[in-house]
Nucleic acid binder design. Structure first.
Lengths: 336, 336
DNA sequence: ATGAAAGCGCTAACAG
DNA sequence: CTGTTAGCGCTTTCAT
């Protein structure tokens, strides 16, 4: 690999001139330098440049599960605005594992100009450690329980749960179960809180055994639904806190030969590109994840190119109810 | 940020000793150095280390569509072996766009120790430019038409197509249509070739208008299926060259009110975690994408830590037929 | 506008 | 085992 000295020598100038030429400044012998660059196939070392300048021209993005279409869409949204602004994206998958998240964070901090992360838990020590540091961080989809200086963009989870409960009660359901996300994560907690609050607003009690703890992964939706179905008094409707668990829940019902929505209504958080193809097409609480990603990226870029000390901003994106065919009026109390 | 000199000064040793200590060598004043490191909160600059050593400790992975569960699984497989070996993954999404692929490649080359890529097209100039360079590259899922020095791991696409055709003909189908991937990509071409060859092995002709050109994206499956259904003589079965296009094809049939498999049988390449939940559960040609990722990573690591000049290896992973409910015997010729 | 030179933080010869 | 020292390739003062 040719370096800047080779170019300087070939063009008969100093390395400083080559450097200036490369950064767009007008140089007398620009033509000769350009030729030398071309002939030598020279391209500047990003590593040396970074060491000197401190800039990486890349952003880190850490999500809990890149397989989840929600996060995949989010990442595309981030890319939509980061790439045109000259930033390369470095993607990390924490796989819902705090240790992995921590190791990704450690490896991203010294390699990026800023980080967009969906923190696994509300008391995320690895993320908290970045508060007040010079590296800007934007929280997306999930936030922390403690007040921080991070910008963040989240969905209106409480409103989403309310939409779901309103929809089910308007269909005549009262025996409504909930498969939650981890209560240690912010969407897990706020979706559950929203559910409980909406239920009591409707004067409906929530039985303990109608509250199943999940972890946002498919498996836990499967087991949550099996547990619900083994009850003597079964719910007539189940609200599942995210898309992956909804898939697991549907698989469980499939296995059990339970018909949706005839035997039980199912509604979940998060839309999916293929939700309409599921059997039955799934009624969901959706939102625009790609736009959520764009907003997060803009917040981060503002710190990088604009005011780094602007007060932390919180953007809440709206949610919407998408009615498909997995919900209907209950037939009658659901007995075993 | 403290640097290695600060640590050396605090511990009363030379920077060389600190460096040795950090790389695990036994040093006399190890204890004092350790203390200094802790007290100063020192962590070595990866950038400076890279500039000096030439190692990045990270691998680049470029896939055409991270939203596609197949590639998401592939990436997990790569991570399975790269992370324990001390390599960080840098992910890139080329989004089926050659220009984006090229820009990702350019940005990855100077930042990684090796690259695993699913090249978009068989005549991929950006990838070809890396042949014979010092940076090892492994081709995965897709390969190039030209002979190269790259290791590669691909599925047995021709066998997959044969399995699909055998399955359909054994059910009694002869009017079989095919929605292909782009013929410029290796799986696109080999799946189509495999289809045509298997058809003629069965003594079956393939009408021109039964061959729809797709691009592996959902949209093109949708349009391909609509076009097929507008024919006067409709096929009784359709083989779709990948999962995303199959979803699009199913959507088209859904919209048209066509029943699967009563009105038409559908089979596709690539299994999906939710394929069994689709309406109807999809019969597919599947393979172990996670294992495919692991193999690719091992091939790359071999070049990095073992023999860099070993002859290029090609690994073919097997495919399997997973029969679900989207295929059945044809009722009768399918007329409009 | 240009060149000389210092130095970003680290590693690896080399000499002891 | 240890310290000294010379860079890795680039950017950026500081003179000119």
């Amino acid at each position: 690999m040719a370096n800047i000295q080779d170019v300087a020598r070939a063009a008969g100038v100093s390395t400083a001139s080559v450097s200036r030429f490369l950064s767009g400044k007008t140089v007398r012998s620009g033509e000769a330098i350009g030729r030398a660059v071309r002939e030598l196939g020279y391209s500047p070392s990003v590593v040396a440049r970074t060491l000197k300048s401190g800039r990486h021209d890349s952003l880190g993005v850490i999500v809990p599960d890149i397989t989840n279409p929600f996060f995949a869409g989010l990442v595309k949204g981030i890319d939509d605005v980061a790439r045109p602004a000259g930033f390369q994206l470095i993607l990390g998958n924490s796989d819902e594992d705090p240790e992995q998240e921590n190791s990704l964070l450690e490896s991203f901090v010294p390699r990026t100009d800023g980080i967009i992360i969906a923190p696994l838990v509300e008391e995320d020590r690895s993320v908290l450690g970045l508060d007040g540091q010079s590296l800007p961080v934007v929280l997306v989809d999930r936030q922390l329980s403690i007040e921080t200086g991070f910008d963040r963009v989240v969905a209106d989870n409480v409103a989403g749960s309310r939409l779901a409960v309103d929809h089910l009660t308007s269909l005549g359901h009262s025996a409504i179960a909930f498969i939650s996300g981890p209560p240690t994560s912010s969407p897990g907690r706020s979706r559950r809180d929203g559910f409980l609050r909406s239920m009591s607003a409707h004067g409906l009690a929530v039985r303990d055994d109608y509250l199943r703890l999940g972890d946002f992964r498919e498996e836990s939706g499967f087991h949550g639904m099996r547990a619900l179905w083994s009850l003597t008094d079964r719910p007539t409707a189940v609200f599942v806190a995210n898309n992956l668990m909804a898939i697991g829940a549907l698989k469980a019902l499939n296995d059990l030969g339970v018909r949706v929505p005839e035997d039980v209504s199912v509604i979940s958080f998060d839309d999916l590109s293929f939700a309409s193809l599921l059997n039955p097409p799934l009624t969901v609480i959706g939102r625009d994840e790609r736009e959520q990603g764009r907003i997060a990226a803009r917040l981060l870029l503002r710190r990088l190119t604009g005011d780094p000390a602007a007060p932390a901003e919180k953007v809440t994106v709206p949610v919407e109810l998408v009615i498909r065919r997995s919900t209907s009026s209950p037939r009658s109390p659901n007995r075993k």
